[in-house]
């Protein structure tokens, strides 16, 4: 129930993305892909924070925008300098994404196990 609005948001964003006819110049696709990674990282980071009960909306939003912008900027700078900083951003976001995913999985697993243990105890008592 809690996640209805975020899921609706996902669908809404996908809808806007698919109906928008605006074509991004192909040169900027690389930077866009970093922005995609940064936003995914933020989504999973947010979910992780919810599970760890230290969620802060302002942190999430500022983190999202600064991450996406700075990553794209770094990639651009790297292109100018001839250093593939692009991969550094991809690497950093990728690692963080997997870490967050692992933490989320652990949390889900533990909560699932707890429920199971309790229900098992109930069963034994009967």
């Amino acid at each position: 129930m809690r996640l209805v609005l975020p899921i609706m948001g996902l669908i809404l964003g996908a809808y806007i993305g698919s109906t928008l006819t605006f074509q991004l110049p192909a040169v900027y696709i690389k930077y866009m892909s970093i922005a995609v990674l940064a936003s995914l990282d933020s989504v999973f980071g947010g979910i992780k924070a919810i599970m760890e009960k230290n969620f802060d909306g302002a942190t999430l939003l500022t983190g999202f925008f600064t991450n996406a912008l700075v990553a794209a900027l770094l990639a651009y700078l790297g292109d100018r300098l001839g250093v593939d900083l692009y991969y550094a951003a991809v690497f950093a976001f990728g690692v963080r994404l997997f870490q967050n995913l692992a933490i989320i999985r652990h949390h889900i697993l533990t909560s699932f196990k707890n429920i199971k243990i309790f229900s098992g105890d109930d069963h034994e008592r009967q």
Binding site: G9, G17, S18, S33, V36, G57
Partner: peptide, 28 residues
């Protein structure tokens, strides 16, 4: 809950980016 709105916002933006990027990549 306090996290619903920011999370929704992030979800909208990220899924928009994702689909937009998928669409652009599919074209080239």
């Amino acid at each position: 809950r306090k996290y619903i709105l920011p999370l929704t916002l992030i979800c909208i933006i990220s899924s928009f980016f994702l689909v937009f990027q998928l669409k652009t990549q599919a074209k080239n």
